[in-house]
């Protein structure tokens, strides 16, 4: 038997390690992770109720729970009209990712005219944990996403902060300042789901 020198042994072991690693990565891409047979990936795909695409003002199409209305999707911005579409239920698991759900939080802050949930919206902000895009300029949108906080609840947003009622400090009864009725909502979404945008369209 021919003896290999020490450097040559190291080189052979290095090649073996690279090959095994490449094979493992390919298997993972196919959804064949350890302890997970290939068939399981397809059986665990959970698709939400498919909702008809609603036309958007820019010509794009989006998925919405309000098929009768033009809604906005805050997952991504439309580059052409710089407005956002608002998607409500994107809860299907991505087969391309082996059926794993990658959840992210979306936060919607509504400022209402009065400190009760069914009061009208007078201001709003949105933060998207699923988006990699920088936030656009403030003051871009003209119409509130909902007419009231209650309407947001009915559309699936979960209320996580309710404003306290506070009297003005003595002597400051005639001083106005910040918008008072700040309600914070959240949605947990599957950020691994493909974007519900019509084929051929860009976002």
């Amino acid at each position: 038997m021919r003896r290999l020198s020490e450097p040559k042994v190291e080189a052979v072991l290095g090649n073996v390690r690279s090959t095994v690693l490449a094979l493992l990565q390919q298997a993972l891409k196919r959804g064949e992770g350890p302890g997970k047979p290939q068939s399981q990936a397809s059986t665990t795909q959970v698709h939400a109720i498919r909702i008809p695409f609603a036309p958007y003002s820019c010509g794009h199409s989006i998925e919405s729970s309000h098929a009768s209305q033009t809604k906005r999707c805050w997952l991504r911005s439309h580059a052409c009209c710089r407005k956002r579409c608002y998607v409500t239920d994107v809860a299907h698991r991505s087969p391309e990712r082996g059926g794993r759900v990658r959840t992210r939080q979306q936060v919607l802050v509504l400022y209402l005219a009065l400190p009760q949930l069914d009061s009208r919206v007078v201001g709003w902000s949105f933060y998207d944990g699923a988006s990699q895009q920088d936030r656009e300029a403030h003051g871009v949108e003209v119409e509130p996403p909902y007419s009231s906080g209650l309407e947001a609840l009915r559309d699936g947003w979960r209320l996580i902060e309710y404003p306290r009622l506070e009297n003005p400090a003595p002597g400051r009864e005639y001083q106005v300042g910040y918008l008072q009725a700040e309600f914070v909502f959240e949605k947990i979404i599957d950020s691994s789901a493909p974007l519900p945008v019509a084929e051929g369209e860009s976002v």
Binding site: Y111, V122, W124, S125, R135, G139, Y178
Partner: peptide, 30 residues
Amino acid sequence: GGTLFLPGSHYRRVRVSAIGRYQNIVGQEQ
């Protein structure tokens, strides 16, 4: 994107950029 104003907001005592948390306010005028 010319200057945007919120008419009627001049009586409100706030701290400079703290109101940046309001991304949109009904009544804003560009």
